[in-house]
Every structure is written in C-alpha cells, then in structure tokens.
Amino acid sequence: MSPKLRAVIKAHKKAHAFWLSVCGCTDTLKLGREATADEEALWDKGNDGEYAALWDVCRFPARTTADQAAKGRYLRKFHSWKFGYLEEDQVDALMLSMIEAGKGAK
C-alpha cells in the first residue's frame, strides 16, 4: 500500500474512532435527558469528520494493484451489515476514482 493511501486510511480510522467516542453523546436514553447544544455540536463534528474522511478514502485514486486491493478491503468494512452501506456520493467518488486511475493505464 502506498504511503498516501495509508495516510488517507489512517485519517479515516482516527475520524471514525472520534465519532465512535462521541456517538452516544446525544442519546437521550443514555443521557436520561435531552442533549445540549454543545453535545449536538460535538456529535455533528464527529459525524461530519468521519463522513468526509470516508469520502476521501472512496475518492482516493488507487493506481496500483496493491492500492486497489487495500482500498477495496478497507471499504468493504463500511459496506456491511455492521456499518450499513456507502452513501450515494461516496459510491460516486469511488467510481470516479476508478475512472481517473484507469486513464493512464494501458
């Protein structure tokens, strides 16, 4: 795996871990009350950061077989029963990354 792809995946793992750490901060059952504006903002920050970082992985132009395989294995984790599915714009980014990766290939 290339250092650039490794960095993009590492950034997503960090964003995902942050989101997991704050995802319950707005859960009214867990809190026993309504979430505050600060708690909602923290959840939004975590959610938006994780979403953007996963989009970056989808959009990464994997040009080598090793990068393509690593990217595919990593994304498969987020298209499963546990995490749900990739959003439409993430799938679009993934498709665009494959088209652009293939432009120079013969």
Score class of each variant (00 low, 15 high):
residue 104 G to S: 05
residue 56 D to K: 15
residue 94 L to Q: 00
residue 49 G to C: 09
residue 36 T to E: 04
residue 63 R to K: 15
residue 32 G to W: 04
residue 24 G to D: 09
residue 101 A to I: 03
residue 25 C to E: 07
residue 32 G to T: 07
residue 82 K to P: 00
residue 9 I to W: 07
residue 90 Q to A: 00
residue 15 A to R: 12
residue 29 L to Y: 12
residue 103 K to A: 01
residue 97 S to I: 03
residue 75 L to M: 10
residue 9 I to Q: 05
residue 84 G to K: 06
residue 3 P to I: 12
residue 63 R to N: 11
residue 19 W to H: 11
residue 95 M to K: 08
residue 102 G to P: 00
residue 3 P to H: 12
residue 23 C to I: 09
residue 9 I to F: 06
residue 74 Y to N: 05
residue 49 G to P: 08
residue 57 V to R: 12
residue 4 K to S: 15
residue 89 D to R: 09
residue 81 W to C: 00
residue 11 A to K: 14
residue 56 D to V: 08
residue 33 R to I: 10
residue 41 A to N: 13
residue 86 L to D: 01
residue 61 P to I: 10
residue 40 E to R: 13
residue 69 A to N: 06
residue 16 H to E: 02
residue 80 S to V: 12
residue 66 A to Q: 07
residue 33 R to H: 08
residue 42 L to R: 15
residue 93 A to W: 03
residue 83 F to S: 05
residue 2 S to H: 08
residue 44 D to M: 12
residue 11 A to F: 06
residue 94 L to P: 00
residue 32 G to H: 06
residue 13 K to V: 10
residue 103 K to M: 04
residue 70 A to M: 12
residue 3 P to R: 13
residue 29 L to K: 14
residue 47 N to P: 00
residue 48 D to A: 15
residue 84 G to R: 04
residue 17 A to F: 02
residue 4 K to R: 15
residue 60 F to P: 02
residue 4 K to N: 15
residue 25 C to N: 05
residue 5 L to I: 15
residue 89 D to Y: 06
residue 82 K to C: 00
residue 52 A to K: 15
residue 76 R to V: 00
residue 64 T to E: 05
residue 92 D to S: 04
residue 101 A to D: 02
residue 40 E to K: 12
residue 7 A to Q: 14
residue 39 E to I: 14
residue 101 A to N: 04
residue 8 V to Q: 02
residue 54 L to S: 08
residue 28 T to H: 04
residue 28 T to L: 00
residue 85 Y to N: 03
residue 79 H to A: 11
residue 67 D to S: 11
residue 2 S to K: 08
residue 99 I to W: 01
residue 55 W to P: 00
residue 50 E to G: 13
residue 38 D to T: 07
residue 73 R to F: 09
residue 56 D to R: 15
residue 52 A to D: 10
residue 68 Q to S: 11
residue 95 M to A: 04
residue 5 L to E: 06
residue 29 L to I: 10
residue 25 C to M: 04
residue 65 T to V: 13
residue 71 K to A: 03
residue 23 C to V: 08
residue 101 A to Q: 03
residue 43 W to C: 01
residue 49 G to M: 09
residue 101 A to T: 08
residue 78 F to S: 01
